[in-house]
Design a protein around this nucleic acid. Structure first.
Length: 501
RNA sequence: GCCUCCAUCGUCUAGGGGACUAGGACGCAGCCCUUUCAAGGCUAAAACCGGAGUUCGAAUCUCCGUGGAGGCACCA
């Protein structure tokens, strides 16, 4: 089925190009996801490129975290640094040498020039502009140095950079798929540095050149690139290259809706069991299915009611035309909701295998047989996989530790409660049927002919058996705990109650 | 300060000039179910930023305000 306005697309070549300068976060994850979806949907290629031209900001381990995060989300790439491809290398630093040639070509074409200004001079120019409340930009001091003159200084070894020569007058119009034409006055486009004095290219040049060489057809990237978008269009045009289709994705705002997420916000979030870093979601007990579903819907929608999407659904239904250009505030309670839904949709054995590690990490020794029986009891109660620890940990303990005061039934005292537990203990000791149904019948009968009600009796038993006031359904729980353990726990409860007296 | 983008319930959003009494979801509140907690079901409250214009008709198109966001590096 095809959504209105959607045309069948030719296979795309798209790329996700993070820089290894920090941890991969939600916004990056969504950009990667949309790129992946477009490639998968059209039968094209999804390329991972590491944008590591800034060696000073390189963070050890960041590249690995990018791989891990993307793979956890299920976004496998077709070409990348670790798997190669026809258009490598896929690490920008490894293609350093080619950019200087391209920059020189731009110089020859008159679209770029050598600049010999020192960082100190630039800094003072900037300060002066700020003081005069002017916009800060390069003042063009080296623009008019003659080509021969410049070349001579370069060859003599004078420290220099190569700058883009943005047009002196007129306007530049670039086209974003979601926003239409964006027109800016050329005088507002700075003469950006293309090649640093160390010979390395800066992003603007490197990305344009490599996107062209890699035959990228669609660039889906964050909206923070919008301000330099006209420059990028200009660079492509200066080389005479065809531009890719440009799509700028809205930014993610902090949950309050004001401002984008900062390091400090990230630290606050982790206290509530949330994070903006992709890799944390796994540890926090979120399903990649849920995270994917959640971020997919921040900035994209399918129709007016469908909310739950598998990766397969997304691949099938994603469409650029339904992308939303406005910024979106992150909403963690919605993620919780999606996580619950996806947990409930998980096949039994899948759920079991995902819960296991969480219990193990918490210090339990979950055996698979018990886990298989426990899973159906807790699946519709869990928000995160980590919840399984609090909900089901008692299944994997020999004895439960409990607060004696929790044991006492509603409107009852300790001795009345003890009497009830003793009677139940006796009753259970005599029965051979420890199935949930059998227990339910037996215990309901007990309550009926006693002076107490369900709430009181079952409440007491719940605490005695599980050690908690809140637990999975009582009879099923008792069946799994088993007769031996259950009786021991009742005895233990009786002992505690008698101590209170 | 300069440049750019954005604007529907608290939040994510549907909406492509008449189908709008503005739909869905999360969250919130109430009710039902119920041995606890969930899940599930039902119900409620909740929005077109403002002003002009175009039009028979504007949430939808245009302009101006206002608000929010992003950017202004020999970072990406």
């Amino acid at each position: 089925m095809m959504v209105r306005g959607e045309a069948k697309m030719d296979p795309v070549r798209v790329r996700f190009a993070p820089s290894p300068t920090g941890r991969l976060h939600l916004g990056g994850g969504r950009t990667a996801l949309y790129n992946y979806l477009l490639a998968a949907q059209t039968g094209g290629q999804f390329i991972l490129r590491i944008e590591d031209t800034d060696r000073k900001r390189y963070v050890e381990g960041a590249e690995q975290e990018i791989y891990d995060s993307l793979r956890w989300l299920g976004l496998e790439w077709d070409e990348g640094p670790d798997k190669g491809g026809l258009y490598g290398p896929y690490r920008q630093s490894e293609r350093k040498a080619i950019y200087l040639d391209y920059a020189r070509k731009l110089v020859d074409l008159g679209h770029a020039y050598y600049c010999f200004c020192t960082p100190e001079r630039l800094e003072s120019v900037r300060r002066e502009q700020q003081a005069n409340k002017q916009s800060t930009r390069y003042d063009g001091a080296c623009r008019h140095i003659g080509p021969e003159d410049a070349l001579r200084r370069v060859e003599s070894g004078e420290r220099h950079v190569i700058r883009f020569r943005s047009p002196d007058e007129g306007q530049t119009t670039v086209t974003d798929l979601l926003r239409g034409n964006i027109t800016v006055e050329n005088e507002t486009i700075d003469d950006f540095i293309l090649i640093k004095s160390d010979g390395f290219a800066l992003y603007h040049l490197a990305a344009a050149v490599v996107d062209h060489l890699m035959k990228i057809t669609h660039v889906l990237r964050g909206a923070e690139w919008l301000p330099t978008f006209p420059l990028h269009g200009l660079i492509h045009r200066a080389f005479g290259w065809q531009e890719p289709v440009w799509v700028h994705l809205s930014v993610f705002l902090k949950p309050s809706g004001s401002g984008k997420l900062s390091k400090r916000d990230a630290a606050e979030l982790i206290k509530d069991g949330h994070s903006i870093f992709l890799k944390d979601f796994h540890t926090l007990g979120y399903l990649p299915e849920a995270v994917t579903n959640w971020i997919a819907l921040m900035g994209w929608s399918y129709d007016d009611h469908t909310e739950i999407f598998s990766m397969k659904d997304l691949v099938e239904k994603f469409s650029l035309i339904k992308l939303n250009p406005s910024p979106a505030a992150i909403n963690f309670s919605k993620l919780d909701h999606f996580n619950g839904v996806h947990i409930r949709q998980l096949p039994q054995d899948d759920l079991v295998s995902r819960i296991g590690p969480f219990l193990t990490r918490a210090g339990y020794n979950p055996d698979i047989q018990t886990l298989e029986k426990v899973a159906p009891l807790i699946r519709e109660r869990m928000v995160t996989l980590d919840d399984s620890v609090d909900m089901a940990g008692f299944f994997f303990q020999d004895a439960v530790t409990l607060e004696p005061s929790d044991l006492i039934g509603k409107d009852l005292d300790a001795s009345q409660t003890a009497v009830i537990v003793k009677q139940v203990h006796e009753l259970l000791q005599q029965t051979d049927d420890f199935s949930a149904d059998g227990l339910e019948q037996l215990l309901r009968e007990f309550v009926d002919q006693s002076a107490y009600n369900n709430k009181q009796v079952f409440g007491i038993l719940r605490v005695a058996i599980t050690g908690q006031r809140v637990s999975p359904p009582l009879f099923e729980t008792m069946e799994i705990v088993g007769k031996d353990k259950a009786l021991v726990r009742l005895l233990h409860a009786i002992a505690l109650l008698e101590k209170i007296n």
